[in-house]
Amino acid sequence: MTADLRPPRVGCVVPNGGDLLLREPIAAVVDAVGEGGATGLWFADHLVVAEHASSVHPYSPSADDQVDRIRTVTTPWFEALTCCAAAAAISGPLWVGTAVLVLPQRRPIEVAKMAATIDRLTDGRFVLGLGAGWLREEFDALGYDFASRTDRLESGVATLRDAWTGTLTLGAGQRVHLHPAPVTRIPVLLGGNAPAALRRAADLGDGWLGIAMSWGPYLDALDEQLETLARLTKDRPGTPFTRTVRIVQHDRTDRDELLGMVEAIATRDVDEIVVEPPWTTPAHTATVLQEITDQIGAR
Rank of each mutant, 00 (worst) to 15 (best):
Gly210Trp: 01
Gly210Lys: 00
Gly210Val: 04
Gly210Asn: 01
Ile211Cys: 11
Ile211Lys: 01
Ile211Trp: 04
Ile211Gln: 07
Ile211Thr: 14
Ile211Asp: 03
Ala212Phe: 00
Ala212His: 08
Ala212Arg: 02
Ala212Trp: 05
Met213Arg: 12
Met213Gln: 15
Met213Ala: 13
Met213Leu: 15
Met213His: 11
Met213Ile: 10
Met213Thr: 15
Ser214Val: 03
Ser214Trp: 05
Ser214Gly: 04
Ser214Met: 08
Ser214Gln: 09
Trp215Glu: 13
Trp215Met: 10
Trp215Asn: 15
Trp215Ser: 05
Trp215Val: 12
Gly216Leu: 10
Gly216Met: 09
Gly216Tyr: 01
Gly216Gln: 07
Gly216Phe: 00
Gly216Lys: 09
Gly216Val: 02
Pro217Leu: 02
Pro217Asn: 05
Pro217Gly: 09
Pro217Ile: 12
Pro217Thr: 06
Tyr218Asn: 06
Tyr218Lys: 04
Tyr218Cys: 07
Tyr218Phe: 01
Leu219Thr: 12
Leu219Val: 09
Leu219Ile: 06
Leu219Glu: 15
Leu219Ser: 10
Leu219Lys: 05
Asp220Val: 09
Asp220Leu: 04
Asp220His: 08
Asp220Thr: 14
Asp220Pro: 03
Ala221Cys: 09
Ala221Asn: 14
Ala221Arg: 13
Ala221Leu: 15
Leu222Asn: 03
Leu222Tyr: 05
Leu222Thr: 10
Asp223Lys: 10
Asp223Gly: 15
Asp223Met: 06
Asp223Trp: 12
Asp223Cys: 08
Asp223Phe: 04
Glu224Trp: 08
Gln225Ser: 15
Gln225Met: 14
Gln225Glu: 15
Gln225Cys: 14
Leu226Lys: 09
Leu226Gly: 00
Leu226Arg: 03
Leu226Gln: 11
Leu226Ser: 04
Glu227Met: 12
Glu227Arg: 12
Glu227Tyr: 04
Glu227Val: 05
Thr228Arg: 09
Thr228Gly: 12
Thr228Gln: 12
Leu229Ser: 00
Ala230Pro: 03
Ala230Val: 10
Ala230Arg: 06
Ala230Ser: 15
Ala230Met: 07
Arg231Gly: 08
Arg231Glu: 07
Arg231His: 11
Arg231Gln: 15
Arg231Ser: 11
Arg231Phe: 08
Arg231Asp: 14
Arg231Ile: 13
Arg231Pro: 05
Arg231Met: 07
Leu232Ser: 00
Leu232Thr: 03
Leu232Gly: 00
Thr233Glu: 04
Thr233Met: 06
Thr233Tyr: 01
Lys234Pro: 04
Lys234Asp: 13
Lys234Asn: 11
Lys234Tyr: 12
Lys234Glu: 15
Lys234Ile: 13
Asp235Ser: 12
Asp235Gly: 04
Asp235Lys: 06
Arg236Leu: 09
Arg236Met: 13
Arg236Phe: 07
Arg236Gly: 13
Arg236Pro: 05
Arg236Tyr: 13
Pro237Thr: 07
Pro237Ser: 13
Pro237Cys: 10
Gly238Phe: 02
Gly238Trp: 01
Gly238Lys: 06
Gly238Thr: 05
Gly238Asp: 06
Thr239Glu: 13
Thr239Phe: 10
Thr239His: 13
Thr239Asn: 14
Pro240Ile: 02
Pro240His: 10
Pro240Tyr: 02
Pro240Arg: 02
Pro240Val: 00
Pro240Lys: 05
Phe241Asp: 00
Phe241Gly: 00
Phe241Leu: 03
Phe241Met: 02
Phe241Tyr: 03
